[in-house]
């Protein structure tokens, strides 16, 4: 699995054309599953977002009525929705950047150490990765609990008496910061392991040559490593954007459903509170559609930017 150059030559060729249907045959199972269980429900979601659709319509036998863009106008007229939208975008961006920074830094660190510390860090990271989101959020909250948590006791034992019984979730930014820590904790392992794998795949001779030329570590990173890692970085960036934008569990659990007076709401949690808890399915669907469109715009915009720079997705 170390073929680097040969793979370039293995572009799909026009040589084998007998049976143009072969790829479709291979694709059939995937397309049927995705079409039936993802695209079709998605179509229904879009449909619901244009209707008046509450529990009364679902099981109460009341007729549904077409609302046009009514649900969407209601959303965008809601000042809180706009504020939550902004918070979500900023928070997701911060999560993505922090995750990428930590993951990449630790991946580089992994290449600089011997087997034992590497194994220790790898196992710890895999453990964080394996933990269910509900549990991870609960444990982090527990660690930072003003009464029962070890963090405040440790800080005040170090002489920082201001941290005695300090609440980390009261202030808006501090609460977002705490959630960000948890998000980074559970999502950096993917970045770290992937980037580490990519680093290992860079032929040692290339780096050696650069080092012999007297290039500094930073120049080697900028000039050699980063460009070769680019496809990997694209993958982890796109994945992080997708995952972090849809954050639900961490906010829901750690800020107790949106924080003091709703200061820590993100779009997904807002959708849940606004719609599902009171079964206004159409509003929830509309928020889902808006989220999808934003993600789509961000990701496709990013890929297009890369493409303009000569990358291939």
């Amino acid at each position: 699995m170390t073929a680097t150059d040969t793979s370039r030559a293995s572009r799909p060729s026009r040589a084998r054309r007998p049976g143009a249907w072969t790829p479709w045959l291979y694709l059939a199972p995937a397309l049927v599953l995705i079409g039936g269980l993802l695209v079709y429900p998605l179509y229904q979601l879009g449909l619901i977002s244009f209707l008046e659709y509450t529990q009364a319509q679902v099981s109460g036998g009341e007729p549904t009525s077409f609302q046009g863009l009514g649900n969407y106008t209601e959303l965008f007229r809601d000042a809180q929705f706009r504020q939550v939208l902004l918070a979500t975008v900023v928070f997701a961006a911060a999560c993505v950047l922090a995750t990428l920074a930590v993951g990449c830094a630790l991946a580089v660190l992994l290449t600089r150490v011997r087997a034992l510390p590497r194994l220790a860090l790898m196992l710890a990271a895999l453990g964080a990765w394996a933990t269910p989101a509900v549990t991870g959020s609960t444990v982090w909250l527990f660690l930072f609990d003003p009464d029962l948590g070890p963090v405040d006791s440790a800080l005040s034992a170090l002489g920082l008496s201001g941290f005695e019984g300090h609440s980390w979730t009261y202030d808006r930014y501090s609460a977002f910061g705490l959630v960000l820590l948890e998000v980074v904790w559970c999502s950096f392992p993917f970045v770290m392991v992937t980037v580490y794998a990519g680093l290992r795949a860079i032929p040692a001779e290339v780096l050696e040559a650069a080092a012999l030329d007297g290039a500094s570590q930073w120049r080697i990173w900028r000039g050699v490593t980063a460009p070769m890692l680019r496809p990997i970085l694209v993958v982890v960036t796109v994945q992080s954007v997708i995952w972090d934008f849809k954050i639900f569990t961490q906010i829901y659990v750690m800020t107790n459903g949106g924080g003091v007076a709703g200061q820590n709401l993100t779009l997904n949690v807002y959708a849940y509170q606004k719609a599902f808890a009171s079964s206004q399915y159409s509003l929830g669907s509309a928020i889902g559609v808006v989220m999808l469109l934003i993600l789509l715009a961000v990701t496709l915009g990013y890929l297009r930017l890369l493409r303009r720079q000569g990358e291939e997705i």
Partner: peptide, 29 residues
């Protein structure tokens, strides 16, 4: 390993499919 019409479209679709907020889809599902 094949080249056919809509190949890129399909690739983009596989990417877009990952962005669907699962929570919202449980109702139609």
């Amino acid at each position: 390993r094949f080249r056919f019409r809509f190949r890129t479209t399909l690739l983009v679709m596989f990417l877009v499919a990952q962005m669907v907020p699962v929570e919202a889809l449980t109702i139609p599902l």
